[in-house]
Amino acid sequence: MTRRTPPRPVDVEKLFPEVAPLRRQTVRLHPRAGRPTRRDSSVGGPLLWPEHQPWPQCPEHQGSPMVPVLQLHAADALGLVPFPQGCDLLQVLWCPRDHDGRWVVPEVHWRDAAAVGSVREAPPVPVPVPYGRVPKPCAVHPERAAEYPSWDLDEGLREALEPRFDLLEAETGWVYHHQLSTAPGTKLGGYPGWCQDPDWPDCAGCGKRMDHLLTVQSSEADALSRLTWTPVEDRGTACDGAGLKLGDMGGVYLFECRTCPGRPYEDRFDCS
């Protein structure tokens, strides 16, 4: 089913023209419970994993297999993220067990779907695993949406705009940071769905700030953001997405360098 994000309840760029140049596009994936196959784009679904390639193991837990988090065909990226030459499939896995200072340890793979051939079955989920670390199988319903920086606003600009944000909230009830700026939920590109202060990594190879690749959030929206970001088709229904609980309903954020060979990546995480 198509998912359509409703327009913002006010004209953000008219009220705050300073954020207009900062507008970005994101692909909201809208994961919903389903039965995706290994040929489908999915969150938490089976992967099109080559039989000849070993299944990823956690580097911190000897012999502990990673679990599928995302599989996305290039067509479902809606032209937002450039795939490496010769690749049309993005796969993300992570180890869901406890780690020293990290919720999960992720791994990113790019591949040519047509070249996979015979497929390897995923190994059983390792045990014990904390609740909410393994996403339930979900179909995705990609949709491009415009968004503006929330916690990623430059500190000086944020301080300058806060009085007008407060005035808008007093007059209309709309909260810029939750209801007008950055799209919540699991998404591709755009701005990370930070719960706390931004923590963008720099590439160890070239020193440049990495690009945001993927946000994986515990829920599709919190009580405030769902008032304006819930798709038209889901109004009046409960959408628990992939059933994740990352920390205190936080998120995992993947970043990549699109300049250096091999597209090195880093991860960050936070919660409220």
Rank of each mutant, 00 (worst) to 15 (best):
M1R: 08
R3F: 06
P9Q: 01
A20S: 14
A20Q: 10
R24Q: 13
T26Y: 00
L29Q: 07
L29E: 03
R32Y: 00
A33L: 14
T37G: 15
T37F: 00
R38T: 02
R38V: 03
R39T: 11
S41M: 05
S41W: 04
V43Y: 03
V43I: 15
P46T: 06
L48N: 06
Q53I: 14
W55C: 06
P56Y: 10
C58D: 14
Q62S: 13
Q62E: 12
P65D: 04
P65W: 03
P65F: 06
M66S: 10
V67R: 00
V69N: 08
L70S: 10
Q71I: 01
H73M: 08
A75F: 13
Q85R: 14
G86N: 05
C87V: 03
D88K: 08
V92K: 03
L93Y: 05
W94R: 04
R97I: 08
R97S: 00
D98W: 04
V104T: 14
V105W: 13
A114R: 15
V116F: 09
V119Q: 04
E121V: 10
A122D: 01
P124S: 12
V125Y: 01
P126W: 10
V127H: 13
V129L: 04
V129P: 00
P130Y: 05
P130L: 05
P137Y: 01
C138S: 11
E143P: 08
A145Y: 01
A146Q: 13
Y148V: 11
Y148M: 07
D152C: 08
L153Y: 03
D154R: 10
E155C: 00
E155G: 10
L157I: 01
R158K: 14
E159A: 15
A160D: 15
E162Q: 14
L168A: 07
T172G: 00
G173F: 11
G173R: 06
V175C: 12
H178M: 09
Q179D: 07
L180A: 10
S181H: 04
T182F: 01
T182M: 09
G185C: 07
G189W: 02
W194Q: 04
W194I: 07
D197T: 12
P198W: 07
P201T: 04
G207K: 02
D211W: 05
L213Q: 11
T215C: 06
E220G: 07
D222A: 04
A223G: 13
L224I: 09
S225R: 07
V232R: 13
V232P: 02
E233L: 03
E233I: 05
R235I: 06
G236D: 08
A238C: 10
A242S: 12
A242C: 06
A242V: 05
L246D: 13
G247I: 03
D248Q: 09
G251L: 12
L254M: 11
C260W: 01
D270W: 05
